[in-house]
Design a protein around this nucleic acid. Structure first.
Lengths: 237, 237
DNA sequence: CAGTGGTCTAGACCACAAT
DNA sequence: TTGTGGTCTAGACCACTGT
């Protein structure tokens, strides 16, 4: 059963996206929505506040709630921070994976710390190139503990680890901390991503968490600089 | 007067940061906090949920609320997305600004679109280098409409435009959309930021909004790749 | 002034997890 | 069964805005 606030959120977002609520226009006030969905003001507020966090609308005491004009897309693959999905589901177009290596290693101290395991504990060490429509996009170096995520196989790695974790292991992916930098490309980046030596990569370091607070994945992704961007919307509180 | 949820939020965050609530430990349940702060459960929930959004804690139905282990800092200047402040307040250490140019120009179409003004309307065109402790960090190209933000002077540009907007104009900065890419450095980047030709920049494109929904600033910042990173924490809903 | 959102209450009922 | 958080109500009162 979908929650009421989610119903209102989905309905309003849909109306913003399909133009029923035009950019700059005023949304129905809370009481109107209360009557429409037979609910209380707090429920409407929760739905509207989620849209504020995501940059779809803004609200002002004494005035009302209004649609914020949004910016268009331009062809690069965009990582929308609110989505938090694996590569396979983020990509538009046909995604496929080239597995460069899949090893078990002794965890070095820094990675062990990130994953909350002990130094020298067993660790999956995975290196993959991700392609969209046959073109390389990103070189992904992933580390996971077999303690937390058991039963990884080459087949899973060629498709979606995230799907395996959620659908097969029945665990829930809850959140992720991402840190982004620009970096000079190294010979491996250049070979695997088809870059010239002067072309950089966009590096994304990630720690992903399950819903029980366990960090289950540490990864360093090196993206082609011209095919990837990361978008963030932030609201002051 | 500070709100109750803000009081609880601040108190809890402080206790996490100073170690009173250790990483991994369980927070007091909602009812306990209700009694401590003489408030209702909804108020505690609001405070705790803000900490979830920011990656300080996670919560699980049937179990409780727990402190999430956080990652340390390492000396690069970090743009924490939840903060949304101008450069001057983001920087630790002594910040200063070199003004390269400050002009009035006719708005080109693409920038006019981002700022919600008409093509060829007057537009401030500002180019600055930002230094921390004498070292260049970022080349900032900023565009603002004098219609929205009147009275900009060289003196304001050498300090903080954000402070001017809030304290002098009395307008409120509410939110920003940021898009990040890696880019090859151009000769100007190299000269102003002290980069070698093979060294890239981290480009951040930003549209910043006032609390009335008006986009007031469009900027392209080119950061030294080795002195800047952007961090984001995202939670699945 | 009327209309809007912001905060807050004091409950209720439900879903989930550990025991 | 107990204890936890998740959702939701039906109000209340306040703060802010434009007329």
């Amino acid at each position: 059963m979908k929650t009421k606030y989610r119903t209102i959120y989905d309905d309003t977002k849909e109306k913003i996206l399909n133009g029923t609520y035009a950019p700059g226009s005023q949304l129905p006030d809370e009481m109107t929505i209360c009557q429409q969905f037979d609910c209380s003001r707090m429920t409407v507020k929760k739905a509207y506040d989620m849209l504020v966090q995501e940059g779809f609308i803004y609200r002002k005491q004494g005035l009302g709630s209004f649609v914020l004009s949004k910016n268009m897309d331009d062809g690069e693959v965009e990582l929308q921070e609110r989505e938090l999905q694996g590569f396979t589901r983020t990509a538009r177009g046909h995604a496929d994976t080239k597995l460069l290596h899949f090893k078990l290693v002794f965890a070095p101290k820094d990675i062990a710390d990130h994953l909350g395991i002990r130094e020298n504990d067993p660790l999956y060490d995975i290196l993959r190139v991700r392609n969209i429509d046959g073109e390389p996009y990103v070189l992904e170096h992933t580390y996971m503990s077999p303690e937390t995520i058991p039963g990884i196989t080459e087949d899973i790695l060629k498709h979606s680890v995230y799907t395996y974790i959620e659908d097969v292991l029945g665990k829930k992916i809850a959140s992720a901390q991402k840190t982004t930098r620009a970096q000079i490309s190294n010979p491996q980046d250049q070979a695997e991503l088809g870059l010239r030596p002067e072309e950089p990569v966009l590096e994304v370091e990630q720690i992903a968490y399950l819903d029980n607070g366990t960090p289950f994945e540490y990864s360093i992704s090196r993206h082609r600089y011209d095919r990837f961007k990361l978008s963030v919307y932030s609201v002051r509180r």
